[in-house]
Amino acid sequence: GSPGIQSFLPPGWEMRIAPNGRPFFIDHNTKTTTWEDPRLK
């Protein structure tokens, strides 16, 4: 199987799917959430 997208996120980050189907990202380091992919910064 191919590695999940989770493995490509920075340490402490998690990806979830919102009720509307959009992915969002949780930064457990700062306890914040964002719509922006942290890998694109």
Results as ranks from 00 to 15, higher is better:
residue 2 S to H: 11
residue 11 P to V: 10
residue 2 S to P: 13
residue 21 G to W: 01
residue 10 P to H: 04
residue 22 R to D: 07
residue 32 T to G: 05
residue 37 D to H: 05
residue 12 G to E: 03
residue 34 T to K: 03
residue 32 T to H: 08
residue 9 L to C: 03
residue 40 L to N: 15
residue 10 P to Q: 04
residue 8 F to A: 15
residue 24 F to S: 02
residue 3 P to A: 12
residue 33 T to H: 09
residue 36 E to D: 11
residue 5 I to T: 14
residue 9 L to D: 01
residue 41 K to S: 15
residue 10 P to R: 07
residue 22 R to M: 12
residue 12 G to K: 04
residue 12 G to L: 03
residue 5 I to Q: 14
residue 36 E to F: 09
residue 2 S to W: 11
residue 37 D to L: 05
residue 8 F to S: 15
residue 37 D to K: 06
residue 30 T to C: 05
residue 18 A to M: 10
residue 18 A to T: 10
residue 17 I to F: 13
residue 18 A to F: 05
residue 36 E to W: 09
residue 19 P to K: 10
residue 4 G to M: 11
residue 6 Q to N: 13
residue 5 I to M: 13
residue 29 N to T: 11
residue 34 T to C: 14
residue 36 E to Y: 09
residue 15 M to K: 05
residue 28 H to M: 07
residue 41 K to E: 15
residue 16 R to M: 12
residue 22 R to P: 02
residue 25 F to V: 00
residue 8 F to P: 15
residue 36 E to V: 08
residue 4 G to S: 12
residue 40 L to W: 12
residue 35 W to D: 05
residue 14 E to N: 01
residue 22 R to V: 11
residue 21 G to C: 01
residue 19 P to C: 03
residue 9 L to R: 00
residue 41 K to N: 15
residue 22 R to L: 12
residue 27 D to M: 02
residue 6 Q to H: 13
residue 13 W to S: 00
residue 20 N to W: 06
residue 24 F to R: 02
residue 5 I to R: 09
residue 7 S to P: 15
residue 10 P to E: 04
residue 19 P to E: 10
residue 6 Q to V: 11
residue 39 R to Y: 06
residue 28 H to R: 05
residue 2 S to D: 14
residue 20 N to F: 03
residue 7 S to V: 11
residue 13 W to N: 00
residue 15 M to C: 09
residue 2 S to I: 12
residue 6 Q to G: 13
residue 4 G to L: 12
residue 28 H to P: 05
residue 25 F to I: 00
residue 30 T to K: 08
residue 36 E to K: 07
residue 18 A to V: 04
residue 5 I to S: 12
residue 16 R to L: 14
residue 38 P to C: 06
residue 41 K to P: 15
residue 6 Q to M: 07
residue 39 R to D: 04
residue 18 A to I: 03
residue 38 P to L: 02
residue 38 P to I: 04
residue 4 G to Q: 14
residue 39 R to P: 03
residue 32 T to M: 10
residue 1 G to H: 11
residue 10 P to I: 04
residue 18 A to R: 05
residue 13 W to Q: 00
residue 19 P to H: 12
residue 34 T to M: 05
residue 35 W to G: 02
residue 9 L to S: 01
residue 12 G to M: 04
residue 28 H to I: 07
residue 12 G to N: 07
residue 3 P to N: 12
residue 8 F to I: 15
residue 17 I to V: 10
residue 37 D to G: 03
residue 15 M to Y: 05
residue 21 G to H: 06
residue 13 W to L: 01
residue 12 G to D: 02
residue 30 T to A: 07
residue 2 S to L: 13
residue 15 M to V: 08
residue 39 R to F: 07
residue 30 T to F: 05
residue 5 I to A: 14
residue 23 P to Y: 09
residue 17 I to N: 06
residue 23 P to H: 09
residue 3 P to G: 12
residue 3 P to D: 13
residue 37 D to Y: 08
residue 37 D to V: 05
residue 25 F to A: 00
residue 23 P to Q: 07
residue 21 G to S: 03
residue 28 H to C: 08
residue 30 T to Y: 05
residue 36 E to Q: 09
residue 22 R to N: 07
residue 24 F to P: 00
residue 33 T to E: 09
residue 1 G to M: 12
residue 41 K to V: 15
residue 1 G to N: 13
residue 38 P to G: 01
residue 36 E to R: 08
residue 21 G to D: 02
residue 19 P to D: 10
residue 41 K to G: 15
residue 37 D to W: 09
residue 11 P to C: 07
